[in-house]
Design a protein around this nucleic acid. Sequence first.
DNA 1: CGTCTGGTTGATACGACTCAAATTTGGTGG
DNA 2: CCACCAAATTTGAGTCGTATCAACCAGACG
Lengths: 258, 258
Amino acid sequence: MTLLTVDPAFQFNPGPAVATKLDAFAKLSSTDRAALAKITQNVRFIDPRRDLISEGDKPRYVHLVLDGWGARYKSLPDGKRQIVSIFVPGDFCDVNVYILRHTDHSISAITRLKVALITPEEMNALTEGRPRITQALWWHELVSTAIQREWTLNLGQRTAYERLGHLLVELYVRLRAVGRARDGRCDFPLTQNDLADATGLTAVHVNRTLQELRRDNLIELERKQLHILHLERLMDVSMFNPNYLHLDHEGRHLDAND
Amino acid sequence: MTLLTVDPAFQFNPGPAVATKLDAFAKLSSTDRAALAKITQNVRFIDPRRDLISEGDKPRYVHLVLDGWGARYKSLPDGKRQIVSIFVPGDFCDVNVYILRHTDHSISAITRLKVALITPEEMNALTEGRPRITQALWWHELVSTAIQREWTLNLGQRTAYERLGHLLVELYVRLRAVGRARDGRCDFPLTQNDLADATGLTAVHVNRTLQELRRDNLIELERKQLHILHLERLMDVSMFNPNYLHLDHEGRHLDAND
DNA sequence: CGTCTGGTTGATACGACTCAAATTTGGTGG
DNA sequence: CCACCAAATTTGAGTCGTATCAACCAGACG
């Protein structure tokens, strides 16, 4: 399987998603950007469906997704599996994990994944004397856990229909924030099986529920391309409130002046 | 309503749960402890079922639970409600929240709650030049999100029976780690309604499932007291793996030498 | 061309929900 | 100390959303 073709999402924004994302919180200076660029030198590619990190591993690097999609999942002894997070470009997988002895989850590639490996030392060097970046990383961390809370709510209280709608909107909005989505359209490489693992439903039920969403003229989804036809309405029926993504910063928090 | 009676859990450990908890990660020095004690001066009490923080509030303080139980929850426009976290003594509610503009959730008291209010400035002063505390706080943060991930797994993949069993074990183990549980016993102030909100079940089903757990001789639960009769077996049937709590540090990571 | 993965469909089963009411518990005031 | 009330727990009957099992289909790949 050759997957060297350029991800079509690049049509939207060929630039680095990381800077875009952190910029959304605090306008970075040119030296901040240079420092960020520096830590993304050590790049690794992971084939689709391959694990990048396995439960029990000793954490050695912080991973930063430069391109492609990944998923964090946890497995149960009875074979069940839950996707607990989805990573899109610009996402750090685990800031500061190396504080812990062992990871409690696995991370695998959904598409072919391009990640930067960052050592603890590089991480320290990055934040040392750069309050904007330090705060932006904290922001990233807080948003990640806020997303995790929203997923808890999603699984606990929403119906299958709302749950799927909510997940689609979330991913669309997150992609849009890093310039990878526009006009209701984005790449969407998750299979119905992945969606099932992420929503706690079966693949069969995901299939039927997606058909409902299509029938209601809310989405189109085929060939790994998602088109949300009525974002407002989909947000409404899935009770999506974007507040938990904390995108209301627009770099106004701290400003670079160099 | 007068709730000035001393929490019976105190029988186990009258000392400060915070230090106990952070100590589990990194042995704190006496000056570290003094610094911790200092930030717990500004104390506030919250009556049961009252909100401590409401969704949309501007975060002003970091809250540290000194005594009692609390719950973080999110509500949906259709009235549904999900408890996404439970706080027990020694838990920080939100390290560094004040980076965000608005909170995306509410926090309420389960029992009468004793919390310390900590300003951003105090927080900075606490960590400044204290790498052990800084790391311990990061550890706290990482464990909190690991718990959130486990809850996602819990809601997505476990049956009602496993789900409840898992929650009971988690809370018992967390309480034990701060000296508030022993020999399978601990305070357990959650109502069946609370359990329902936390597990994404209905109160009726929680009731029936608790009866099953009792019938299977795994637990006793009455008058707000939990007794886990066979911890090993309960962990087994609920597929509880303690790794996500990252309690395997025992202060060996960093050592104070003063 | 055959195989494989991902998607679709149909029939049936069951876990958890809903609604409604009874019972118990704990706190309050007479 | 007892009567009362509200909150929490328990029980029963009926329903529904989602799972399960089993095929079948379509496109991509080798």
